[in-house]
Design a protein around this nucleic acid. Structure first.
Lengths: 155, 155
DNA sequence: AAGAATTGCTCAGCGCACTGAGCATTTCCT
DNA sequence: AGGAAATGCTCAGTGCGCTGAGCAATTCTT
């Protein structure tokens, strides 16, 4: 008899929120391209020619996951991958024409979907919603990636 | 040049929030038992003898996922599974003694973790945080599971 | 009582997400 | 120049999460 109320557990809420989003995305945006895939396309629109690791950093995906996502995008010919001639370890990534078209199309649909998704909240509440989630996520990420001790400042 | 700002995309924020939580859980709560697994244990503490589908409903997992989670929990001997003698389609689920002990232990650690996780927010903000996320998630789930039309109330 | 529909569960297939191990290239240090 | 360290990526393994197809037991209908 020590069951806990999961509605006060942020992890549980985060999972439910993401699932709900996933379903809505599937019906309103695309059944082919997923939300993380869109995030990658978007990162490459902003900064063409990024390498794989950096793209992962921009969208918040680790080395293994970003590799898989990109392999799916290249298989669909939305992204091009070429070895960096300056540094043979890197793959440089770039959208194809088709990739750019896809990004454009999904941008519109995503905006529509977000409106529906956030519909239950007033404009003010939406702002708060973004702010709170971001602060929590940023702080937690900070716990894992402790800042470089900013060089040795004595002591 | 039509890149979008992902920090205003609830889906992206939800994913980051969940990842951040996942990492913290791993370091502060358990490397063996995951958050969804804990949710299942918790549901069975509250209502012993539930069937698989209903547990899934309680914690927000679909039929396939709940089957996998439960198979891991039974493999670890935290949960017992017996055929319902009244209805041969059902598996009835119940915690083992070990499962109960595990739930107890993790309840404590989870509470500690939640404090850290929500640390960046004031008490008031935490309340708002729960409220906003829950409203959005509930509404989105409602879109997918439209209420039974409450019988035919004329026209 | 027999057939149809429903229900609980399993299985295969896809995709996201992480870790640890390992490979190849580059860079850094002596 | 030559070895050590760092860096970008891949691979194998585990777990969550969804869909569609299918099986077996139950319930509903006639």
């Amino acid at each position: 008899m020590a069951a806990v109320d999961l509605t006060t557990h942020p992890g549980h809420l985060a999972r439910r929120l993401q699932q709900a989003h996933y379903l809505l995305w599937n019906t309103m945006v695309s059944e082919e391209i997923t939300s993380p895939q869109f995030a990658v396309l978007n990162a490459l629109v902003a900064e063409p020619g990024l390498d794989q690791r950096t793209v992962g950093e921009r969208v918040g995906l680790d080395r293994s996951t970003i590799a898989e996502v990109i392999s799916r995008l290249t298989r669909r010919e939305l992204v091009d991958k070429v070895r960096d001639p300056q540094d043979g370890r890197r793959w440089l990534l770039r959208l194809t024409a088709e990739g750019l078209r896809t990004h454009k199309k999904l941008t519109v649909r995503t905006a529509r979907m977000n409106q529906i998704f956030l519909g239950p909240l007033s404009a003010d509440e939406q702002t708060v919603f973004f702010d709170l989630i971001q602060r929590v996520a940023d702080a937690a990420e900070g716990l894992r990636n402790p800042q470089e001790p900013v060089a040795a400042s004595r002591g």
